[in-house]
């Protein structure tokens, strides 16, 4: 069984940092009827995009009276259209007090980098405005380049790819450690420790040409050498996380 890497004891849960894209609704003034008709209009342009999405109400450009802000009505209207209002961003103290009264999360003010969502019918709108919270926004433009290592990673050495994948075209020796935010590829024997998805990416995988590892970890779930011996030992395998369990599969049959 895999356990949490931190304590070695099964905990009820673990807190991890998450990066998500979210849509912000920039409100200029609030009128119940006009709000609903505008919303209906937007949804009709791309119904698939709006189904069950989380939504943030941005108050930074709000020009109406605070007293006109009825968050319960906004939440209700959105809910009828399968949109979940989860919080507000910006706004003055009065407005934020009203939001809290409606059980909404309070997010700090955003920046000016938000882009307008193009909900034209031919573009399956996958872009969303940037989330101003401390969590980084996943951008669909340039992928983070993988870190590539051509030399053996020797005992006592550590190689770390903090943002993306790590590709090693040489052995990772016993007593060495390789870590990546994304996947770890070892085109050689993996004799040391390999940790993929160190920021919590559960989809991360470890690939190696010969599994001889001391430890393999994905998003904090790990197996030590002893538990790895029975399956795929000294062969080419990939290791991934399925239902919180590390699963080793041979590469040729993958």
């Amino acid at each position: 069984m895999s356990e949490t890497a931190v304590s070695g004891v099964k905990q009820c849960f673990q807190l991890k940092s998450a990066s998500v894209s979210m849509t912000a609704l920039e409100l200029y003034f609030f009128d119940d009827e006009e709000f609903e008709s505008t919303l209906r209009d937007k949804i009709s342009q791309a119904p698939g995009f709006f189904k069950d999405i989380p939504l943030i109400i941005s108050l930074e450009k709000y020009e109406g009276l605070s007293s006109e802000l009825d968050f319960f009505k906004i939440i209700g209207t959105c809910r009828r259209h399968n949109i979940h209002v989860i919080g507000v961003r910006g706004g003055n103290d009065d407005q934020r007090r009203l939001a809290r009264g409606a059980s909404l999360a309070l997010l700090p003010g955003g920046n000016q980098r938000d882009r307008e969502i193009d909900t034209g019918p031919d573009t399956e709108a996958t872009e969303a405005t940037e989330n101003p919270t401390p969590a980084k926004v996943e951008n669909h433009s340039d992928p983070v380049p993988a870190k590539i290592i051509n030399q053996p990673v020797r005992s006592g050495q550590q190689v770390y790819a903090p943002d993306g994948d790590l590709i090693i075209l040489a052995p990772v020796q016993a007593g060495a450690e390789v870590l990546a935010a994304g996947n770890v590829h070892v085109y050689g024997p993996l004799r040391g420790r390999a940790l993929a998805g160190i920021h919590g990416a559960e989809h991360a995988r470890v690939f190696c040409q010969s599994l001889e590892a001391e430890l393999v970890s994905i998003a904090g779930h790990y197996k030590i050498s002893e538990d790895l011996q029975d399956n795929g030992w000294k062969t080419a395998v990939q290791i991934q996380l399925r239902d919180d369990l590390l699963v080793v599969t041979p590469l040729e049959k993958a």
């Binding site: 030399q151 053996p152 990673v153 020797r154 005992s155 006592g156 050495q157 020796q173 016993a174």
Partner: peptide
């Protein structure tokens, strides 16, 4: 062999 590997790493770094 393990210690030699360690020294090789130090030589490289």
């Amino acid at each position: 062999v393990r210690d030699s590997d360690r020294i090789l790493g130090i030589l490289q770094s």
